[in-house]
Amino acid sequence: MAKGNLQRCLDVVFPFEGGYVDHPRDPGGATNMGITFDVLRKWRGKPITKQDVRDLTKAEAEQIYARNYARPLHFDDLPIGIDLTTLDFGINSGVSRSARYLQAVVSAKQDGVIGEADTLPKVKTANPRDVIKKLCARRLSFVQSLKIWDTFGKGWSRRIAHMEATALSWVSSKSQLEADAKDARNKSAGQGTVAVGTGAGGVGIDQAAGAPVGILLVVVAVVAGVFIVRAVINGQRAKALAEAAANQA
């Protein structure tokens, strides 16, 4: 990778992938450093066991990330910051999906293949801060739609917040990051207020009139829950952005 940013990005990714896990609700099954059983089997081209996954070295994991994820995503051709958010999305949710979502952000043809004729020119001329924010927002919406969100959601949203903040720190000034953190804090506070208001009966008397009590309570709980989740997510973003700003020269 001529640009020389892959190792820098992997150093950000690895802490979130962790070591060996085999969670019963994770469709990837046995996984180590983000490399699933099937990915490792295909990479080695022969039958493997869970012990092989457990014994995977960081050096081999980095080779897999470089060949199977960075290369098809044209990592080395992506601008700094956008490369991190696109790569991490691809590692976590699939290369084709990451490419399609990036293409949607820059209004390119959404075929899941990043190419020099359409996607890359649009990515390179776009505002990197806007692309990073929009791609992370779309990624968050995607993972929230998954059935296993309740199990893994808090970790996913924290990871996305960290990737967004780190990527932005590479293309932003300290004052820009501070403003981003303030905006996220304000959103979190506002959403928390709405959640409390809804839980206290803020659905509205006119809307509630005539509705069965059971249904009304469910509606109130659902609406309040949505705003609580949003408040938590923006709280995570605020924290990550504030930390990035504090570390900025």
Rank of each mutant, 00 (worst) to 15 (best):
Ile215Leu: 12
Ala242Arg: 05
Thr31Trp: 10
Ala104Met: 14
Ser175Asp: 15
Val143Asp: 08
Asp22Ala: 12
Val123Lys: 00
Val123Gly: 04
Val131Arg: 02
Asp130Met: 01
Gly81Val: 05
Ile205Asn: 12
Phe75Gly: 03
Phe16Gln: 02
Phe227Val: 04
Thr119Val: 15
Asp130Val: 01
Leu87Ser: 02
Lys174Ile: 05
Ala165Met: 00
Lys42Phe: 14
Glu178Val: 12
Gln191Tyr: 15
Gln63Trp: 08
Ile114Val: 02
Ala30Val: 13
Leu102Phe: 02
Ala209Asn: 10
Arg158Gln: 14
Ala117Tyr: 11
Leu120Glu: 01
His23Trp: 10
Gln110Ala: 13
Pro47His: 07
Ser96Lys: 13
Cys9Gln: 06
Gly192Tyr: 06
Val131Thr: 01
Ala245Gly: 13
Gly201Val: 04
Thr151Tyr: 10
Ala246Cys: 11
His23Asp: 15
His162Asp: 06
Gly204Val: 13
Lys3Ser: 12
Ser145Ile: 12
Gly201Gln: 04
Ser141Ile: 13
Leu56Pro: 01
Leu40Trp: 11
Val223Asn: 08
Leu10Glu: 03
Ile91Tyr: 04
Leu102Glu: 03
Gly192Trp: 03
Thr151Phe: 13
Asp11Thr: 13
Ile148Asn: 10
Asp76His: 11
Val39Glu: 06
Leu168Phe: 04
Ser93Glu: 10
Lys134Phe: 03
Gly28Lys: 04
Gln7Tyr: 11
Ser96Glu: 14
Gln248Met: 09
Asp38Asn: 11
His23Arg: 11
Phe37Gly: 11
Ala245Met: 09
Leu216Cys: 01
Ala240Leu: 03
Val105Ile: 12
Met1Gly: 14
Val223Pro: 10
Gly235Tyr: 02
Leu135Val: 07
Leu56Val: 00
Gly155Asn: 04
Cys9Ser: 12
Ile48Val: 05
Ser93Gly: 09
Glu62Leu: 15
Gly235Val: 00
Ala221His: 07
Ala2Val: 09
Met33Lys: 09
Val213Trp: 11
Ala108Trp: 05
Gly225Thr: 08
Ala208Asn: 06
Pro47Trp: 08
Gln236Met: 15
Gly153Arg: 01
Val113Leu: 11
Ala165Tyr: 02
Gly94Val: 14
Trp170Gly: 06
Gln144Arg: 15
Asn68Arg: 07
Gly204His: 15
Val218His: 11
Lys239Cys: 08
Arg25Trp: 13
Ala70Cys: 13
Val220Trp: 02
Ile82Thr: 01
Tyr65Ile: 02
His23Thr: 09
Ile114Ala: 09
Ala246Lys: 07
Ala161Phe: 05
Arg158Pro: 09
Thr49His: 03
Val12His: 01
Ala244Val: 03
Ile132Met: 03
Lys154Asn: 13
Ile48Asn: 05
Gly214Cys: 00
Gly115Ala: 12
Ala238Arg: 04
Asp183Gln: 14
Thr125Ile: 15
Asn234Thr: 08
Ser96Met: 08
Ala208Tyr: 05
Asp22Cys: 14
Glu60Arg: 08
Leu73Met: 10
Val171Glu: 02
Val12Leu: 02
Val222Trp: 12
Phe37Pro: 00
Gly4Ala: 11
Gln103Asp: 00
Ala179Gly: 02
Gly153Tyr: 02
Gly201Trp: 01
Val229Phe: 07
Val213Ser: 14
Arg230Tyr: 09
His74Pro: 00
Ile148Trp: 06
Ala70Ile: 05
Ala167Ser: 07
Val171Asp: 05
Lys154Asp: 13
Lys122Trp: 09
Ala246Leu: 08
Ile233Arg: 02
Pro212Glu: 13
Gln7Cys: 09
Phe227His: 08
